[in-house]
Structure formats: structure tokens, C-alpha cells
Design a protein around this nucleic acid. Structure first.
Lengths: 146, 146
DNA sequence: TGATAATAATTGCAATTGCAACTATAATTT
DNA sequence: AAATTATAGTTGCAATTGCAATTATTATCA
């Protein structure tokens, strides 16, 4: 099966690499990529906390999915929920010390895969082109909201 | 949230675009992307048929997932299974006329999204760079099988 | 040949996801 | 201010996925 279009290549590459990264994490007895994403988003956030809807935005996940993902992280004590004081409907998700530790533990494994599977095969110029193009695509997608 | 690394952009772009494409298909009362992939793989294949494991390879899906995906396509009469004569363990999946018709019906919707969300934002030179880079990454991933 | 290992595909079951409905609160309108 | 609409987050339930085990058949090799 020879893929011709850039889009088809994009899709297939994503599927293959993500599959391999998930396998590497699992092999190291670590949680899946989605957990990493959430932990990292929270770690970067001011005060290590984010409202649920902000988090959902950041990690590109539906609200209901995020609710349950955070449930799982919470039972693993990597995150905790805090009732928002200003808006009584809202909740913050805050990363715990254990969460920070887990993120740190996952990173080298994840990084190694990114390096080996992705970065290693991109020349600096290509990397730059791709980054700029993807940024443009992403930006456009936010505007042209069908 | 400003994404810096190319990999992070790659992941996010994928998530956002796929979500939009799925939404567009659903809005047009059409089946999801995975169905398209299977139908298209079969349409391209010699005699419009592929063994289950070949198909799984082609669409980057686990075997068991494919079994059930083909189940669904089969109940929708878009595909049918045929016992392999040479290898009694095996089964072929063959696209039906209705399957061909469905693929044809899905394509314009899918194409429109690809064009608007992806292609429209890539200059020809960028497209070429990206295609070549992705091909290289994909090829490497097949070799370096961890 | 007969035993052993490998491959093809499916199945059972648990975990995750998607979608629509629901609860609670906040914002807007008249 | 009351009524209406919108937003935040969760929940129920069905559909899909992931993983390990299973069945059937084919390939290997001692």
C-alpha cells in the first residue's frame, strides 16, 4: 500500500507512531498518553491548576471524556479537584506532587520515542517548515469553524 | 496554550482535524472515517478483496478491532466475507457494489474537509517537504520495530 | 511421521469513548 | 426582579476499543 497524498501520510504516520509510543509507555508500566497530556497541561498552568473546560480545550477532548479521565487520575491521586469559589458551577483540576512526579517519570520514556520515531528523521529545515505549516493549519481550523 | 514542538503540533492538529472531519461526515449522515478507510483499501485492492490481516495492516488497526469493524460493515451490506479456499483459516473481505457506492458518496464530503482544513493552508513547497518527511518517518518506523 | 510452534481470525470481557440528557449556577433580556 | 438563555460539569447508556484467551489450520523440525 503506497500512500500518495500528504493527508493520507499524515493520518497513517500518526496512527503508527502513537501506537508505538503507547506500547513503549505500557512496557515501562506507565500510564497512557492522555494521562501525560493532562498532567503536562496542569504542570504548565499557573498555580498548577486549570478549570475543567480549559483543560478539555488544551488536551482536545470532549468535556464528558475529560470528566472521566480526571476521575481516573484522581483515584490514582495524580490530580485533585477543587471547587471554584467564584463560579459555583465550576471545578479546578490541580496536579498533585505525585502527579508531578509521575509526569517526570513518564517524560524520558516519551521523549525517547519522540526522538527515535519522529525527530531523528527530520532535518532542521524540514522541522521548521512543518512546524510553521502545522501552526498555520491549526490556527485556520480555529477560525473556520464550519 | 502555545505549542512549541513540532510533535505537539502534530498531535494537536491531528486531533482537531479528525474531530472536524468526523463531525462533517456525521452531519451528512455518513459513516465514520474508519469505514471510509476500509472501503477505500478494499476498492483499491486487486479484485476488490483483501485478507483480514492485510486489511488490518492497511488501515492500521488491531486484528480484533478489524474483525468487529468488518462485522459492522457487513451488517450494513457494504462488505462481505468470503472464506479463503487455499488457507482454510483465512477470510477475505470483499467490497460490495453498495460499498463502492457508499465510498463514492463519502468521498466528496471527506475531500472538501481535507481541502479546507489541510491542503488549503499548505504551499506546494511545504506540501512536498511534508510529504517527503512523513514518508521517511513512516518508513523508518517499520524498520526500527523497537 | 508426529510433535511443536506459528499464524489467521474470532470471542469474552473490561476499559474507554461518544452522545444526549440532566443539574446547578450564572448571564442576559424585558 | 422575573423569566429566559447560556455555561460548567457530570451522568446514563450504548458503541467502540484494547487485551488476553480460544479455535482452527498451516508450517516447521526432530
Amino acid at each position: 500500500m503506497t500512500l500518495t497524498s500528504t493527508w493520507a501520510l499524515f493520518l497513517t504516520t500518526h496512527a503508527v507512531l502513537v501506537e508505538k509510543i503507547e506500547a513503549a509507555l505500557k512496557k515501562a508500566d506507565l500510564p497512557p498518553l492522555t494521562w501525560y497530556d493532562v498532567l503536562w497541561a496542569l504542570e504548565r498552568a499557573p498555580e498548577h491548576r486549570l478549570r475543567m473546560h480549559e483543560l478539555a480545550q488544551g488536551v482536545v477532548l470532549s468535556r464528558s471524556n475529560l470528566t472521566r479521565l480526571v476521575d481516573r487520575l484522581e483515584t490514582a491521586r495524580l490530580v485533585k479537584r477543587i471547587q471554584a469559589t467564584d463560579d459555583k458551577r465550576g471545578a479546578y483540576s490541580v496536579i498533585t506532587p505525585a502527579g508531578l512526579a509521575m509526569r517526570t517519570r513518564m517524560w524520558p520514556i516519551y521523549l525517547r520515542e519522540i526522538e527515535n520515531l519522529f525527530n531523528a528523521h527530520l532535518k532542521p529545515a524540514e522541522d521548521a517548515v512543518m512546524r510553521e505549516a502545522l501552526r498555520r493549519i491549526l490556527k485556520a481550523s480555529r477560525i473556520a469553524d464550519d
